[in-house]
């Protein structure tokens, strides 16, 4: 087991091991493994990619190719709270751009960035299918509807 990476604790490594163990024999399971591994570690440091490549017996270049292809996977550390503002058409029409603008202005992060204190990371995401609540925003899995540029900062205050 590799244990030379600062970002990944011993417990994380053993969880990653069991993820690999669970799916190693299933053809096509790479994306599932990556999703579950990201749930454990939070993002993909180089050591994790190489470890999964070895464990799944898939070239590391292919693993990186897959990680960098899908927007679910992150190559940079995330914040403690992940803000996902829906940028689907309905939300866009109803002001998602302004919502993102306000968050960016307040916390000094652009889309895809994380605040220095790792409190928030901000993403504009594809339609979350909650168009009835447009503009919608998902924070750590909680859906917030009818968000406006004015109300968004108040919502964020609750997350530290």
């Amino acid at each position: 087991m590799s244990c030379c990476s600062e970002e990944i604790s011993q417990e994380m490594w053993s969880e990653v091991d069991s993820v690999i163990e669970r799916h190693r024999e299933t053809p096509g399971a790479l994306i599932t493994v990556l999703r579950e591994a990201q749930d454990v570690v939070g993002w993909f440091p180089q050591a994790l990619i190489e470890y999964i490549a070895k464990g799944m017996n898939i070239p590391a270049s292919d693993v990186f190719g897959v990680v960098s292809f899908y927007s679910l996977f992150s190559l940079t550390p995330k914040g403690r709270n992940s803000i996902k503002v829906c940028t689907g058409t309905a939300c866009y029409v109803k002001g998602a751009r302004e919502v993102i603008g306000r968050i960016s202005g307040e916390y000094g992060i652009a889309e895809g960035e994380t605040t220095e204190d790792r409190r928030f990371d901000l993403e504009g995401v594809r339609c979350v299918g909650a168009c009835g609540l447009a503009p919608a925003m998902v924070i750590n899995g909680d859906v917030h509807g009818d968000v406006t540029a004015d109300s968004v900062l108040k919502i964020l205050e609750k997350y530290s």
Partner: peptide, 18 residues
């Protein structure tokens, strides 16, 4: 198996491991 496509769209790049 040393290289593959990486990233996507107009960011696409031929990448080696990581």
């Amino acid at each position: 198996n040393a290289i593959d496509y990486g990233y996507r769209g107009s960011d696409a790049k031929i990448i080696a491991k990581c």
